[in-house]
Amino acid sequence: MIPAEFDYDVAESGDHALQLLEQHGDEAKLLAGGHSLLPLMKLRLATPSMLIDIGRLNDMSYVRDDGDALAIGALTRHEDVEGSDVLEQHCAIVAHTAGEIGDLQVRHFGTIGGSLAHGDPASDLPTVMLALDAQMVLRSSSGERTVGANEFFTGLFETALGPTELLTEIRVPKLTGGWSYQKFHHRAQDWAIVGVAAVQSNGGASVALTNMGEVPLRASGVEQALTSGSDAATAAQEAAQNTSPPSDPFGSADYRRDLARVLTRRALQEAMGR
């Protein structure tokens, strides 16, 4: 399968990438690792007329301890997120989940920013970012703004990123409590049929769901039940509330609702036991 024709340019710096975006506007797509975008282009589900290759901007690949938060450069490859000592120590759910994405070959090229900007509700990192209340740093030629994960994912393959904006950094909190990411998939390398992220907070937990709607969803029914004193197993029964999971060859919507409840129970139990 061959993508439709497009023009291609290599961004030499973040500023250059923004200039090229200004120049080409809505017709352009940024290419980081390409492991989400190229498969769509090969299927001709995406047909950008211009690709701006930001994959060589190595200064956007880092994990930094910024005191009260951790800063992850948008072009940090999954492999490096998975292997980051700083993340392992302070926000291990991100490192763990990066290691659950695709397979080794995919993790060598795919980037955290590319995965988030792609806005696929079946991918794992968006859900984890939602459970963590992560902040996305977006840059354009007119300045920088920060958008919370709860506002970043706006629809199926849609995010708050404007056509001339670049996701430069992801900021995640340092965790003090337990966490879990439960991924249920068909083959080891596959997308989640359903996934559940749980992060312990004082008196409860933040819980978010993968592939239970057009965007990653917070399981607010579960969170409320926990706050009002329910145990994990009881609270997990609320996991499918206000969700609209897809039906596909891997599972019906009903099956996914059931999985969400089961995986939420497992996630809560693991998070609370960690």
Binding site: M1, Y8, L31, G34, H35, L38, P39, K42, G102, D103, L104, Q105, V106, H108, F109, Q189
Partner: peptide, 23 residues
């Protein structure tokens, strides 16, 4: 041809890569 099967795996700068998903 969909970066699933790995038959096209090569090394790029020493790292395994699916060459059907790289330009």
């Amino acid at each position: 041809d969909t970066s699933t099967c790995g038959a096209c795996t090569i090394l790029v700068n020493g790292k395994s890569a699916k060459s059907c998903t790289l330009l």
